[in-house]
């Protein structure tokens, strides 16, 4: 529909401009995102922080085309994916997503969960898909549980399986929405370690999280959202240590009081 701005400069993997999303309510429509601008370069890890209800999940859902945006544009590798003419399924195939509640399919084994999309969507032959899946499961120490079903896994194992499942189709971009929020504290570490490893492997990641320690040590960019506005973004040592906005400071103070930093 329209050209990406600044096309001859470097091309980010993900570019978001003036993204607006409203939800219909009894009193009209409530804006949940009010004009978000965001660039994510290749191999970058971007974390979204902000209070519950600030719009982090909605932003990720808009990027994955699970929601229809009300204004603004989103480009993936230079393609305007908010254009109604694009094939949303084809776009989603290039994006891996993991949600807070691990959405593993309960009727499929761990191995079948991981191989479902490679086999059915990308047409990879069974043996090859299973070999690749076993390799991934090996790396996260779950190869022995490949024949187990999701309800036989611990929360951490299930969430790591969900991440591996998202990676199995070799996405361009990985979206993680509070992947550790539903976990027991002692299980958070193993999941974050996996995310760290995936990031080190060069994956481009956008991650909504409450783990400030992780944001500080693993992120290239930290974005602070409040009330659907991206108030502040920058390297973690700036946003998390010396924030420019009073609101960001208040939020971080509350997080520190809650003992999450």
């Amino acid at each position: 529909m329209s050209e990406q701005p600044g096309e001859f400069a470097h091309q980010p993997v993900l570019r978001v401009r003036n993204l607006v999303k409203t939800y219909p309510t009894a009193q009209g429509s409530t804006p949940v995102l009010r004009g978000i601008d965001l660039d994510v370069d290749e191999h970058q890890v971007v974390t979204l922080i902000g209070a519950s209800g600030s719009g982090k999940s909605t932003l990720l859902r808009c990027v994955d085309l699970l929601e229809q945006v009300d204004d603004g544009q989103v480009w993936l590798d230079g393609q305007d994916i908010t254009d109604p003419r694009v094939d949303a399924d084809a776009v989603r195939r290039r994006i891996g997503v993991v949600f807070q509640a691990y959405n593993l399919f309960p009727h499929l084994s761990v191995l079948d969960n991981v191989t479902l999309a490679p086999r059915r969507v990308h047409g990879v032959p069974r043996e090859q898909a299973e070999a690749q899946a076993m390799e991934l499961l090996e790396r996260i120490g779950l190869a022995a549980r490949a024949r187990a079903y999701p309800d036989q896994l611990s929360g951490g194992q299930a969430q790591r399986t969900a991440i591996v499942r998202a990676l199995a189709v070799q996405p361009r971009l990985l979206l993680l929405d509070e992947v550790t929020s539903a976990l027991d504290p002692e299980l958070v570490g193993e999941v974050l370690a996996l995310v760290r490893e995936v990031a080190a492997g060069g994956m481009t990641i956008v991650m909504a999280t409450h783990e400030m320690g992780f944001a500080r040590s693993a992120a290239d960019v930290v974005c602070f959202l409040e009330g659907g506005v991206l108030l502040e973004q920058g390297p973690p040592e700036q946003v998390l240590v010396d924030p420019q906005h009073e609101r960001t400071r208040t939020f971080l103070r509350r997080v520190v009081e809650a003992g999450r930093l």
């Binding site: 529909m1 329209s2 804006p31």
Partner: peptide, 20 residues
Amino acid sequence: VFGDARGGLLPAPSEVELGR
């Protein structure tokens, strides 16, 4: 502006959005 329950004002829809 268009309807906004929270009182915050949203700009009118952009050219691109109208096209969509």
